[in-house]
């Protein structure tokens, strides 16, 4: 491994560490307000179309970015009635672990997919590939 490649992997690792830190430490504090599309759907009265539809896929291992099994009871005031009710809510740790899992998963899947595709290229044209990389 020459110095150039070493520096590439240092960059990649630093970028991965930064991404993991975002997912692990910052994501639990992200806004939980509806996003642009959800808000428009609420305001324009078509959010029910999603709420009344049974999801086509029910087997997501980490639904809604909450690592399963990590909930806490919180008391919240109902916006409309003003009633104080107790609710089960995912903890911050649940969000952090969801972020860590997803970030690591797409990194590994991305690398694997790219390696597979690159291997396909080698079979086609070894020499053309060599030329391209030496010219870069």
């Amino acid at each position: 491994m020459d110095a150039r490649h070493k520096s590439l992997y240092v960059f990649i690792l630093a970028g991965l560490a930064f991404s993991v830190a975002l997912a692990l430490i910052v994501s639990p504090f992200a806004s939980s307000s509806p996003d642009g599309l959800e808000k428009v759907a609420e305001d324009k009265g078509f959010i029910e179309k999603a709420e009344e539809t049974e999801p086509a896929w029910n087997s997501a291992p980490i639904p809604d970015y909450a690592f399963p099994g990590l909930t806490e009871k919180v008391t919240v005031e109902d916006e409309k009635t003003g009633e104080v009710v107790e609710e089960e809510k995912p903890t911050r740790l649940a969000t952090a672990l969801a972020g860590l899992t997803g970030t690591a998963a797409v990194f590994v899947m991305g690398w694997g997919l790219a390696l597979l595709l690159k291997a396909g290229k080698k079979e086609d044209a070894g020499e053309a590939g060599l030329q391209a990389s030496s010219g870069a």
Binding site: H5, L8, Y9, I12, G15, L16, F18, S19, V20, L22, A23, S27, A30, Y65, T95, G99, G102, T103, A104, V106, F107, V108, M109, G110, W111, L113, A114, L115, L117, K118, K121, G129, A132, S133, A136
Partner: peptide, 21 residues
């Protein structure tokens, strides 16, 4: 895809996933 773009693709995916949260 070349030597550089394989890890860069993986890093991009990881960053985009994390940042989208």
């Amino acid at each position: 895809l070349d030597e550089k773009r394989v890890p860069l693709l993986a890093l991009c995916a990881a960053f985009v996933f994390a940042a989208q949260m």
